[in-house]
Structures are given as structure tokens and as C-alpha cells.
Amino acid sequence: ELVLALYDYQEKSPREVTMKKGDILTLLNSTNKDWWKVEVNDRQGFVPASYVKKLD
């Protein structure tokens, strides 16, 4: 499943990933309501769920 980055996000820990507004990311896990695991540029990590939106 793919998600769209709604905002820029700068990683604050090694478990997170940086994304730019408009990026298309692969959603790996959305079981946590606050932090979703995504893959971007061959890196996996977490981003705030409120910063991304699922693409239909």
C-alpha cells in the first residue's frame, strides 16, 4: 500500500525516516495509530501517521 507525505518530516532518531511533502512511500505497518512504518529510498522507519495519507 502507498501513502503520500502531506508535510516534510525530519527524522529525530535512527528508527525514523526523513520525507518531503509530496513523497510517495510504501506503507509497511499501520497498526500503531500515531507512528506508521514506511519505506522510502530503500530505508525503513517510522513517520508520524498524521503526516501521511493512504492513496486509493
Score class of each variant (00 low, 15 high):
residue 5 A to Q: 02
residue 31 T to E: 14
residue 31 T to I: 09
residue 25 L to Q: 00
residue 41 N to K: 14
residue 29 N to V: 08
residue 40 V to G: 14
residue 12 K to Y: 06
residue 39 E to C: 13
residue 49 A to S: 13
residue 37 K to E: 14
residue 34 D to T: 12
residue 38 V to K: 00
residue 27 L to Q: 01
residue 8 D to V: 02
residue 15 R to P: 06
residue 17 V to S: 02
residue 36 W to M: 04
residue 2 L to H: 11
residue 21 K to E: 07
residue 38 V to C: 05
residue 54 K to G: 06
residue 50 S to A: 14
residue 37 K to T: 08
residue 9 Y to I: 01
residue 23 D to M: 14
residue 20 K to T: 09
residue 17 V to H: 03
residue 38 V to P: 00
residue 56 D to Q: 11
residue 44 Q to D: 07
residue 45 G to W: 04
residue 33 K to N: 12
residue 48 P to L: 03
residue 55 L to S: 04
residue 40 V to N: 15
residue 48 P to Q: 02
residue 31 T to P: 04
residue 1 E to W: 13
residue 35 W to P: 00
residue 36 W to C: 04
residue 15 R to K: 12
residue 40 V to L: 15
residue 8 D to F: 04
residue 22 G to R: 03
residue 14 P to H: 10
residue 30 S to R: 08
residue 13 S to P: 05
residue 25 L to D: 00
residue 9 Y to V: 01
residue 39 E to Q: 14
residue 51 Y to M: 14
residue 21 K to A: 12
residue 10 Q to E: 15
residue 49 A to K: 07
residue 32 N to V: 05
residue 38 V to Y: 00
residue 13 S to F: 06
residue 19 M to D: 00
residue 23 D to T: 08
residue 50 S to H: 12
residue 31 T to Q: 13
residue 35 W to F: 07
residue 35 W to V: 03
residue 41 N to G: 15
residue 55 L to F: 10
residue 2 L to R: 14
residue 29 N to W: 07
residue 13 S to Y: 07
residue 18 T to A: 07
residue 46 F to D: 04
residue 6 L to F: 03
residue 44 Q to P: 06
residue 10 Q to C: 12
residue 24 I to D: 01
residue 49 A to Q: 06
residue 1 E to Y: 12
residue 33 K to Y: 08
residue 11 E to R: 12
residue 36 W to A: 04
residue 54 K to E: 08
residue 14 P to D: 13
residue 15 R to Y: 12
residue 20 K to W: 10
residue 6 L to I: 09
residue 43 R to K: 11
residue 2 L to D: 04
residue 34 D to W: 15
residue 36 W to V: 08
residue 47 V to Y: 01
residue 23 D to L: 05
residue 29 N to Q: 11
residue 40 V to R: 15
residue 13 S to K: 07
residue 32 N to G: 10
residue 31 T to G: 11
residue 3 V to S: 04
residue 39 E to H: 07
residue 41 N to H: 15
residue 10 Q to D: 15
residue 20 K to R: 14
residue 2 L to K: 15
residue 10 Q to S: 11
residue 10 Q to T: 15
residue 54 K to N: 07
residue 42 D to T: 10
residue 15 R to Q: 12
residue 46 F to S: 03
residue 21 K to P: 03
residue 16 E to T: 08
residue 45 G to Y: 04
residue 46 F to R: 04
residue 45 G to T: 02
residue 7 Y to T: 07
residue 32 N to H: 11
residue 28 L to G: 02
residue 56 D to I: 12
residue 17 V to N: 04
residue 21 K to Q: 10
residue 36 W to K: 01
residue 38 V to L: 04
residue 18 T to W: 04
residue 36 W to G: 00
residue 11 E to H: 09
residue 1 E to N: 13
residue 47 V to N: 01
residue 50 S to E: 11
residue 27 L to R: 00
residue 49 A to I: 03
residue 22 G to V: 00
residue 5 A to K: 01
residue 28 L to V: 12
residue 14 P to E: 13
residue 30 S to F: 07
residue 9 Y to D: 00
residue 4 L to A: 06
residue 12 K to F: 06
residue 14 P to T: 09
residue 8 D to S: 08
residue 22 G to I: 00
residue 47 V to E: 00
residue 15 R to V: 11
residue 46 F to W: 15
residue 9 Y to K: 00
residue 26 T to V: 15
residue 56 D to P: 14
residue 44 Q to A: 12
residue 48 P to S: 02
residue 4 L to F: 09
residue 21 K to Y: 04
residue 27 L to Y: 01
